[in-house]
Design a binder for these strands. Structure first.
Lengths: 99, 99
DNA sequence: ACAAAGTACTTTGCGGTACAAAGTTAATAA
DNA sequence: TTATTAACTTTGTACCGCAAAGTACTTTGT
């Protein structure tokens, strides 16, 4: 009966990464500074959480110049989308179990 | 726009405590050993997580003798149920935002 | 030419968390 | 009396989250 925890993804237990992924599910891409402002994070903190998502291949990065300014854009990978969906399904089960 | 994280309860970010609360929402009470087996935890680990929930007044404890054996039974407090429901609502919002 | 500011990090350091394993207390059973 | 069970508490280790400071590179302002 530890099925309650099955499919709950450790990576997404953290609220910041949960938020990042949910933003990147709805928006195809998002820039570093936009995410930073949306979630009110220090840049170091944001960079660290993104790095965790990258390490797990849940997020991909694109670096470019927008005008004359460097810009880093993040996207959820197909693998990231799959993993996150599975996580949400696990949460949904818990919710349905109770409501 | 950090509303994504609003109402996400830090206490329930942890998978074990999430599971404990979801069990105690569905079952009025649960015994120490039952929870331990359900979630496949060491007793120290279970005790620690329950202690966290107790400290926050989300769970109450009842100690008694069942036959001749001591038995500790846990329940979600009204406050705990309220807090957990709010947390699930926050998760539900995230899910609905995406589906 | 030089200083200041912006972008996107990385590093540092601290306090907190998660966990297993071992130790503890108190009662019951053999 | 020794062992067992229940429910913890303590200990020790490893990891995590975060702010703040430092870094590298570029652009903008004077």
């Amino acid at each position: 009966m530890k099925s309650i925890l099955e499919n709950i993804n450790k990576i997404f237990e953290n609220r910041v990464r949960l938020a990042l992924m949910s933003i990147l599910m709805v928006n195809d891409e998002a820039e570093f500074n936009a995410l930073k402002q949306m979630l009110d994070l220090t840049d170091g903190n944001l960079a660290a959480h993104i790095a965790t998502l990258e390490r797990n291949h849940y997020v991909s990065v694109r670096k470019e110049y927008k005008g004359r300014k460097p810009s880093t854009t993040y996207s959820a990978t197909p693998e990231g989308k799959r993993a996150f969906t599975e996580h949400l399904n696990a949460l949904e089960k818990i919710i349905n179990n109770i409501h």
